[in-house]
Amino acid sequence: MARTGERETVWELKPHTAAKHQLLTGYLKAWFPILSRWNARIVFLDGFAGPGIYKGEEYGSPIKALDVLLKHTHRDAMANKEFVFLFNEAEQDRYEQLEIVVRDYVAKNQPWPSNVKVSVGSDSFENVAEGILGFLEQQKSNLAPTFAFVDPFGVKGLPMDLLRRLLSFDRCELFVYFDFNTVNRFANAGNIDDRLTELFGTDLFKQARGLTGAERKAFLHDLYQSQLVEVCGFSYVKSFEMVNSSGHTGYFLFYGTRNIKGLEVMKDVMWTVDPGSGEKFSDILAGQDVLFQAEVDTRPLQQDMAQHFRGQLVSVETLAHYVLVDTPYALKHLKKLTLKPMQKEGVITSPNQKRTGTFPEGTLIKFAD
């Protein structure tokens, strides 16, 4: 494999990267058909696409994204919709490798579907985003529903303000790499403050001074998350933590959307990757036979809801929204694993339930005082 100095053009696929791809492809499997029902054009943007392949011939995110669509069980139903894949890689050697990988993939999948457009470019993510924005301004048009996968090395070239401008349209979503290891190391060093200010869209990261351990991690994590909400205007932001082989947090993946259905789908995928908590993957446990509980432990959720809704009469739809937005649990954990045992224990009752233990749409639930 080619090298530039000591930097590899193609490198080994790490377990946490495979988990990241699992999150990405799991989400796209649902996102493509959902969005194509209502939109004539769908865009997938991979802003830091890499070489497209790893040592051992494992495909990278660009080909995995294409694979999801071309092998989708509902592909025929989406044949009249246009799918645009934009792959960008700034490093010249990796871009050249990516071109070869994409070209070979297209050749292997002939006849290539006419509704699937693929573009491979080599520029900075900032220039690519500015180019898209300039084109939209000239056309006086809005960006088609776009899933932006932004997965850089480090903290350079990812200004919060650029994300705001590029993803300001309602149907645009973000899946972004947040290099916690670098941010944590340099938040108070003073030598890359300009980069970190661009990354966060504020210099409030400096308030991490004096914080240590879990408190410092939570502060930096929550600051970036709040900026995605307040600056970029995402209604819902959910993160997933990646722990390296030394047991330390390497980075977080942040998902941003304005659609609660998107949040529901992403949380389902996160719980598939992490059946224990839906929030974390560790390289330490990769490849090991980890024994998870047969069913998710929803006792913390039961206690939380019993306290939060104490004495109230609420709909099951209200509870579903609460679980999705305000807890780490997924919607699939609500009825059978949470409400059913709560009713059995007398914590909740229902004035309009037709059958005990079932909670169809419109069910009202009364929480004990």
Rank of each mutant, 00 (worst) to 15 (best):
T9G: 12
T9F: 06
W11Q: 09
W11E: 11
H16I: 03
H21M: 06
H21D: 04
L28G: 01
I34P: 00
R37M: 11
N39D: 08
I42N: 00
D46T: 08
E58P: 00
Y59F: 12
G60D: 02
K64P: 01
K64A: 07
K71I: 07
F85T: 03
E89W: 01
E96W: 08
E96C: 10
I100P: 00
V102R: 00
R103I: 06
Y105N: 05
Q110Y: 08
N115A: 12
S119I: 13
G121D: 13
I132Q: 03
L136P: 02
Q139G: 10
S141F: 07
F153E: 10
G157P: 00
R164L: 05
L166C: 04
F169N: 06
D170C: 10
L174W: 02
V176A: 04
V183F: 00
V183A: 01
A187F: 05
N188Q: 12
A189L: 09
L196W: 03
L199S: 01
G201D: 00
F205G: 00
F205N: 01
K206H: 11
A208T: 12
G210A: 12
F219S: 08
H221L: 14
D222L: 09
Q225K: 15
V231R: 10
C232E: 00
V237P: 00
S246N: 15
H248R: 15
H248F: 14
N259L: 10
V265R: 02
V265E: 03
M266K: 04
V269S: 00
M270T: 03
F281T: 00
S282V: 08
D283Q: 09
L285Y: 10
D289V: 15
E295D: 12
V296E: 06
D297L: 07
R299D: 15
Q303D: 13
M305K: 02
R310D: 11
S315M: 13
D326W: 15
A330Q: 08
L331T: 06
L331I: 12
L331N: 07
T338N: 06
K344Y: 15
T349K: 08
P351I: 08
R355Y: 14
G357K: 08
F359R: 01
T363D: 06
I365T: 01
A368V: 14
